[in-house]
Design a protein around this nucleic acid. Structure first.
Lengths: 338, 338
DNA sequence: ACTGCTCCTGGAAGCGTTTGCAGACGGGGA
DNA sequence: TCCCCGTCTGCAAACGCTTCCAGGAGCAGT
């Protein structure tokens, strides 16, 4: 390459990277040669020499859940535009996570890391910190790290208060539990806490039998709802930790022949693209924006424009009332309707 | 590192990689030292020196569509287990795609590439080939490349024949069109072709007004269906190119007050996780397996176990009859019911 | 004791960039 | 005319590994 353009490798590097002084004429000559050879500087060599890899790592627990797909999509959009590459680590289970931290493939390979809602132990967080590269957390706040997320407690409040305002008293919580113990999401806890405190604030202390859990995803929501259906007393309303669980709950309810929202109201959290189709009342969040914002924050830190100290950005959520919520049928759930 | 273990860098490399002869005792000593320092060999340096990066590139047009999320999920599972890293390139538009090929970030950075259904021009395919690294195509067959996919034509046949066997004659096709011209999927074409040939084989040559298109995703399905709803004569059945379009179509139909399947039958293709919830009849495919199979094929080639010549694996599809299809109401769609 | 092995280890040459340093060149001010 | 300075370019030393090659040690067979 250097030979074809008739210059030294040093000049090739300067011409192509735009760093340092190169005469316009030389630069053009080098660019021409590069084009002719379809030469691209080796990212490996470049990274090794410069210490910057122009690559970031993204760590996700799921890919097929709406929230994560949307966030990653937002991230890649920004990174792609900035000329950064994205290394994707899909850590679906505690075992995956342990292998990941044992191997630490991120070390000296990425300039920064985006951790999406990853449930991490103390040790793992320390291991990430030890990499000594910028880190941004998306979807859950991590001590001392910049983050982008929503206020999960407030979002849960909004959902539950909506039900309470409609007159519901007997409100259940449908949550997801991890496949592996110790792999639970922070946001799950927060949403549960939000549910409890909203209930408490309304003077409705729900029995723990109204808090049911299933595996992540639609099936989990269906299973959890089935548990409620087999309970002593059917709630008049259900708040699901996120929309996919709500879809599962709806499914169970329909199969049970119950009318929604007449018999049971359901509210979710996310505003998944299917929520509108299923006419699900939900508290909406903008996942793709979370991704692009986090990516932008990370880039700013990487480019040294880190004049901003680590910030926690909290994106707004908004209740979207649709057809799965309504006032409870009078008497239903309390005494058999006459 | 070498110092701590009291050996040369060469021995460190051999001990950690397992290549070459090292006494068990030395190896243990090196491993200990590595553990103590939490030392991980620099992937960049290692790649530069050895020529193997232990990284593959995955190119996808979408992340938030079920099919792609599932495939990528299958891919990462296999790659993670094999100790490979995955570089994700999300090329959502023709512009993204062009930028990608201009920058060619894959060059000298990955050992292999997985291309998921990417609509590529001749030039782009050549550019990929020029990288001279193993390439596997998922979801669409590419000339001369190993691939993993389903038989789209046959799958469409299965869907349409199901409708025909139920007695439908007036069957519409709902398809997705790309945001950018020249960014259309091969599988879309094949499914359309399958629709036409199944119709033709039954002696039902549909007017082109029965082939409607919307943007990718649920919205697109809804828009396309709306077009049918505003047409001169409502079909008694609809085949949607993939489930998300079918969901959109169902949505439109419901909003229009039509009963499913009494007024209109709908069949999709994918068996998206929501299909069961919506009770959608569909032709199922296993996207995650496609991803893991393709990843395995790629790994085999990379590890030199490429005793197998480039293969095209065709995974089976299966009609899953659910509640959105039924025989047409007699007379409906032909003359107003009396 | 010497030869010929095998097994283990270290030296050193890359891999393809980036970047600090220095030299060459040319122009403007004293 | 001389000197200084700014601009452009090349040299060469990293960057942190892998791998070829050679040498040393230990051992068995003559």
């Amino acid at each position: 390459m250097a030979a074809l353009a008739g210059v030294s490798p040093a000049t090739v590097s300067r011409s192509l990277s735009g760093q340092g002084n190169v005469s316009a004429q030389t630069r053009e000559r080098v660019r021409d040669a590069a084009r002719r050879l379809s030469y691209v500087p080796s990212p490996l060599a470049s990274g090794l020499a410069s210490g910057r890899t122009r690559t970031i790592g993204v760590v996700v627990p799921f890919l097929t859940r709406w929230y994560f797909g949307s966030v990653v999509s937002g991230v890649t959009r920004v990174m792609e535009a900035a000329g950064y590459d994205v290394l994707l680590y899909h850590l679906g289970s505690a075992a995956d996570r342990d292998r990941f931290f044992a191997r630490m493939p991120l070390a000296r390979r990425v300039d920064g890391v985006l951790s999406l809602c990853m449930p991490l132990t103390e040790d793992h967080t320390l291991a990430l910190r030890a990499l000594d590269i910028p880190l941004v957390s998306v979807g859950s706040r991590m001590a001392g790290l910049p983050s982008v997320c929503i206020d999960d407690v407030a979002a849960a409040h909004a959902a539950v208060n909506h039900l309470i305002n409609l007159g519901h008293e007997n409100i259940a919580f449908v949550g997801g539990i991890p496949d592996d113990p110790g792999f639970g999401f922070v946001s799950s806890e927060l949403r549960l806490r939000g549910y409890r405190s909203a209930m408490g604030a309304a003077g409705l202390a729900p029995p723990s039998a109204l808090e049911v859990f299933g595996r992540y995803g639609i099936d989990g929501g269906a299973t959890a709802m089935a548990r409620l259906l087999s309970g002593a007393r059917l709630p008049t309303a259900v708040f699901a930790e996120y929309d996919e669980l709500a879809f599962g709950a709806l499914w169970s309810l329909r199969r049970a022949g119950l009318a929604i929202p007449q018999d049971v109201s359901v509210v979710g959290l996310d505003d998944h693209e299917m929520a509108e189709v299923l006419d699900l009342t939900t508290v909406g969040q903008d996942a793709a924006s979370q991704g692009s914002l986090a990516a932008t924050m990370l880039l700013e830190t990487l480019d040294g424009r880190s004049d901003t100290p680590p910030t926690d950005i909290v994106l707004p959520t908004e209740l979207r009332v649709r057809g799965t919520t309504a006032p409870p049928r009078r008497g239903v759930g309390v005494v058999p309707s006459t």
